[in-house]
Design a protein around this nucleic acid. Sequence first.
DNA 1: AATATCTGGTCATACGATTAAATTAATCAA
DNA 2: TTGATTAATTTAATCGTATGACCAGATATT
Lengths: 228, 228
Amino acid sequence: MSPLKPGPRPERGDATREALLGAAVTVFARDGFDAARTRTIAAAAGVNQALIGYHFGNKAGLYRAVFEHLAAAIETHLQPARATLAAELGQGTPGRPGRARCLALLGEVTDAFVGLMTSAESAPWARLIIREQQAPTAAFDVLYARVMAPFAQDLEALVTRLAPARDTLEVRLAVLSLIGQVLVFRTARAAVERFTGWRALGEDEVAVVRAHLRDNLRRLFAPAGRRA
Amino acid sequence: MSPLKPGPRPERGDATREALLGAAVTVFARDGFDAARTRTIAAAAGVNQALIGYHFGNKAGLYRAVFEHLAAAIETHLQPARATLAAELGQGTPGRPGRARCLALLGEVTDAFVGLMTSAESAPWARLIIREQQAPTAAFDVLYARVMAPFAQDLEALVTRLAPARDTLEVRLAVLSLIGQVLVFRTARAAVERFTGWRALGEDEVAVVRAHLRDNLRRLFAPAGRRA
DNA sequence: AATATCTGGTCATACGATTAAATTAATCAA
DNA sequence: TTGATTAATTTAATCGTATGACCAGATATT
């Protein structure tokens, strides 16, 4: 490579970092920051415990890195949905979508969100985020700015089209109501399962939830003066 | 374990137990079970650390006792609302309330729930419960049976009156949607404040939320075939 | 040779639990 | 009312342990 001193080192520790991040997401989500043991994380990653200090400084550094990792992961996860919306709602587009189309789009976004909140894969992510909401640290700012705010703004744009009469605050509260209706299936999962009698949220149950929420959407954004 | 009999022994350690429970709610809610230090709790209670062991066996025993304490506290907190409902919906009552009355009752219950979820006083309770939902222990069973299930059943009874066409599962999902719309103001408080621009949820903001949710109720349970 | 990465081992610390002794308050005999 | 008796409660101190951080040396890569 470059014969000179500042040559880019081949970063051969990348695999180790990835393994540690992957294991850390799981363990931090399961046990929380304090209960999570660096030895447990290292073992799950199949890596020496001292490497946490080497690569991330310390346990807190690893935690921070996990959230940056997370933000990036969710960003790419929601990218397709955001792209569709941008294409249809973007300023450059000719024919603006009508009410029916907006409702359909909102339904699709909701479906995707439900999928994210119920999927087993995302359970660790969600747990970490919920934990962080209870006592926001600097990690939360990254997450809000990169993931939550853009998502909420997408919803806001759609709801504004569907309920043009409402002012900004009313629209945002409507967005939060929508988010709440989905979020409950993650934040209150234990109670949800007991109350519905479901033993788990598999594909069938998720389909029922989606249908129910679409129904809610129709009612919540029914045009004034007409049937719900 | 402490003696249960209220017999001749005057239970002079009651004050200590109360102080420990009060301090434990705060500290467990703020720090979580693992991060909470028995020394911190004891100091906050103004009591010797060893008394945790003496009165509750150990840290886990104190945690369990906190949840029993909590269940009792919330029970009495929701008692008036439940009594009203029981009086109006009870089997023994003569004239069953009509749709409008049911909607009004549902609005009142929702208002009370919003008050509970936004009050600073209940913040520690809510945090504990949210934590417990993520990884339910035996403490959760007590809480669900004594607090959550009765509350959800009250809501279910009301919703059933308002939407008699729906089957049990649909009604229960409607109840969960309702709960979710309120819960989001606690579980996602950090995001809510950023998104609405509110710096805190004071009386004014709570009033706006309540009005918004009543509006949602009207739309969600609008009689079929008529205006929302 | 030089640097990045990894390893096994160690260390100081903070933790929950426990103990033995001290203190408090109720009960009773006189 | 007294002082003695007894059990409940409280205290200060200590114990064993598990933890996160750290280090000196080994190994791999260029």
